[in-house]
Design a protein around this nucleic acid. Structure first.
Lengths: 231, 231
DNA sequence: ACCACGGATTAGATGCGTCTAAAGTAAAAG
DNA sequence: CTTTTACTTTAGACGCATCTAATCCGTGGT
């Protein structure tokens, strides 16, 4: 029996591990969750007692296999909910995150199953984030790079965007930068600003480095298995 | 900012007030929620401080207008969820209660609005319980009587059944006793057992008094405004 | 090597929701 | 009118998640 809060910590640690690799620092977790560092230290201690994380004092923390499984379960709930709200309840791309955060801890396995079925067992959510499979094996998101690492002239397909900031999502949606869209990098300013030509209508759009860093892209074409359609 | 737990207490008090009228006793609340009486006393004190209930020590408790509004909001969530799960996620009649209990505290106003829209602003849930309207005015369920109070020969339409016990619901569903069904009382045993002829197929079904007491019925026909269809 | 500084941990407190055990009260029964 | 009984409340404790204030590493600069 894990509390909602513990699930949130595990999800946070998982996400931070994906972004920066383990070990994850106390203050990064605190920052991510909006808690103070002592609070995190105390919570991490409890997670360690339960065998959900490995920890080295003053160093950092890393999920155990068991902890990762819990994180993936929560993430599966979260992303299925995002997909369901978008597809069946007419939510827009940028509205779903908070609702999914609130609900993810409270749905039953039965609910999870029925939502997944209603959606046709999807593999990505509306932001392009992979939905962990029902058996909770870690999804593989290799083959993607950050838009901020690309070069002028690159032709790319948007694969994932961060779902954390609704305002940013609103902006990207407006700009047409959505999972599945093809873009071309037309300019990179010295301070990291990336300019891209978007999709078919040839619009140009400049994105600050902070945003470009959160956008994952893949090479275009080479007939791949799944295709993502924008909201 | 009310906690989930406080919402549960208000919902419980509302329900008990509907069943037995105010005031509601500490031990009834404790029984209903599966808590100990001291726990209830303590919680009721906090609700009183916030102006959600009126209380007379050693007597009992009653919702204020404000407390009733909160209870109706939670009940609206609960019953909309029950209806949605039944209609759109293929849940059966008897499965929805626990899921709705878990989710009712965590959905946003936006979610409530969209679910209500997806259902076409329904007025009753699958068990026949009235769904409070969006403006949270108390629903009126006069004109209904308990099946246990009826007499041999009465022709009746099932209006509501209790949603609390899945096993009982399973049994009633099996028996064909669902909201909207027409029944005729054919026998009443001295210890309260009621026998009814159900619907068109003329099956006879005996119901213990404890069950008959939770079934609400109304007179048939007289062309009424809304009609309820069984799950 | 030393020391200073940034980040991490311990110490100690708070509010919530819960419990058990003990004390109190009200109403029915004698 | 007194006593019993059933129910309610007070007292005191606990675990969780959180905070602030104080202390404690460990590492990079001199």
């Amino acid at each position: 029996m894990l509390s909602d809060v513990m699930e949130d910590y595990l999800k946070a640690i998982y996400t931070l591990q994906m972004e920066q690799g383990p070990p994850v620092s106390t203050s990064d977790i605190a920052e991510y969750l909006g808690k103070t560092p002592p609070t995190v230290t105390s919570m991490v201690g409890k997670l360690e007692e339960r065998g959900l994380v490995d920890r080295e004092k003053y160093k950092g923390v890393e999920l155990t296999t068991e902890g990762e499984t819990v994180a993936l379960e929560v993430l599966r709930h979260h992303r299925l909910l995002e997909a369901y709200l978008t597809e069946h309840l007419d939510y827009s791309w940028s509205e779903v995150h908070d609702e999914a955060d609130a609900l993810e801890h409270h749905i039953s396995e039965e609910f999870e199953k029925r939502v997944a079925a209603a959606l046709g067992e999807p593999e990505v959510d509306p932001h392009g984030d992979p939905i962990p499979s029902a058996d909770l094996t870690p999804p593989d998101s290799s083959g993607l790079s950050a838009l901020s690492e690309c070069e002028v002239g690159d032709h790319l397909v948007v694969a994932r965007v961060s779902d954390r900031d609704p305002a940013e999502l609103e902006y990207l949606s407006e700009a047409g930068v959505t999972p599945g869209t093809t873009i071309e990098v037309t300019d990179i300013a010295p301070f990291g600003m990336v300019t891209v030509r978007v999709g078919d209508d040839g619009r140009e759009q400049s994105l600050p480095e902070s945003v470009a860093r959160t956008i994952r892209v893949r090479p275009p074409d080479e007939p791949s298995s799944e295709e993502v359609s924008p909201a």
